[in-house]
Design a protein around this nucleic acid. Structure first.
Lengths: 188, 188
DNA sequence: CACTGAATAGTCACAAATGACTATTCATGA
DNA sequence: TCATGAATAGTCATTTGTGACTATTCAGTG
């Protein structure tokens, strides 16, 4: 749902064609959403079919005609609905990076430390890149602010974990406990 | 990739069948990954095809036979590789909730405030539920710790935003700036 | 001016993910 | 004891999402 919210929101600022929309998202919003080109086109097509946007084929030269999308008033209504809905909810973010943490105890402490320090380096690098970005096209300040807050918070947590690990204060359960020891199933 | 890491990691603790794996993830790790049943089965099948796990059909009664998966030593090697790789990277989390923030200025300030207060309520509720959970099966402490940290950090940020909005100190750019004012295209 | 690499614009066949099922077993209480 | 709903176990048709591709235009340069 939030992908259509995004597209509708961008189209509120004026008509645009598919490539333009995707390109803008890719350049400016890649850090908070990821929307590949074919997905964007498919969504636009569907939104057109539902009457949220109109399409107008524009051909210049003899390149394949560009399809220019424009928000309808119905689309605007949907935008309003989706926006209210989105703002009122909180959906926790998910990342693949979490999974590994579940299994750190499968590695010797020293190596785990080394790897997490690499992770920390990657994180500070992203943070730096983000901070030095040129006011990000001047727009979407809240998003940027949020992302900065998030990255800093992640860094703080990671540093805390590293400190605890170095001090040997990381309590981890025995890796032998079967996740669901319901019936017979002796631990192998 | 992190889904196979997860499955392999769980299988390290002993053989399990598909339902068991999915069920465990659903119950205990839903907050950090989401893996529907058919996806889990498909992954297991593929891992079997690649020799990372072995399958053994076990039938009891005359229900459809259960397929029990067991990690191979090749699977263990892959696990080690994926784990190291995962720990060394940092991948920023993404959430659909961010998108709405890009468009708060489309709403009257008062209403935006009301909606974000609803969001805040949803967040504190999730936080409360998480804190009161019964030591989460005693396992995966780092994950829990991380999630708690994350939720608290989100709450702090949201409170800050709310405060800024109430004080009218939320600087937002004019909604009229076209995202990519490259060529002709007069703002409509 | 012809050539090259980048930017523009979009498509398509394939891979991944999921909602909605089927079908058996188990607990329970009327 | 036998209906009923929950838990167990898995499948399949459909939708979604994407890597890799085609094809045109444009800017720069030798």
């Amino acid at each position: 749902m939030e992908r259509e919210l995004l597209l509708l929101g961008l189209l509120r600022q004026g008509e645009m064609h598919g490539y333009q929309l995707h390109d803008f998202i890719e350049r400016n919003l890649a850090f908070c959403t990821d929307l590949k080109k074919p997905t964007a086109y498919a969504l636009l097509e569907r939104m057109a079919a539902r009457g949220w946007v109109t399409v107008q084929e524009v051909r210049e030269g003899h390149r394949p005609p560009r399809r220019v999308y424009r928000l309808t008033s119905e689309g605007e209504a949907v935008f309003q609905r989706l926006l209210r809905d989105n703002l009122a909810r909180f959906e926790a973010a998910k990342t693949g990076s979490d999974v590994g943490l579940a299994f750190v105890d499968a590695l010797p402490r020293a190596e785990a430390l080394r790897l997490l320090e690499q992770r920390r380096a990657a994180l500070t690098e992203q943070l730096a890149a983000f901070q030095s970005a040129p006011t990000h096209a001047g727009s979407y300040q809240l998003l940027i602010d949020h992302q900065l807050h998030y990255l800093r918070s992640e860094l703080a947590w990671l540093d805390d974990v590293l400190a605890r690990m170095r001090a040997g204060r990381l309590r981890l359960v025995s890796p032998r406990s079967t996740p669901k020891p319901k019936s017979k199933e002796a631990s192998p």
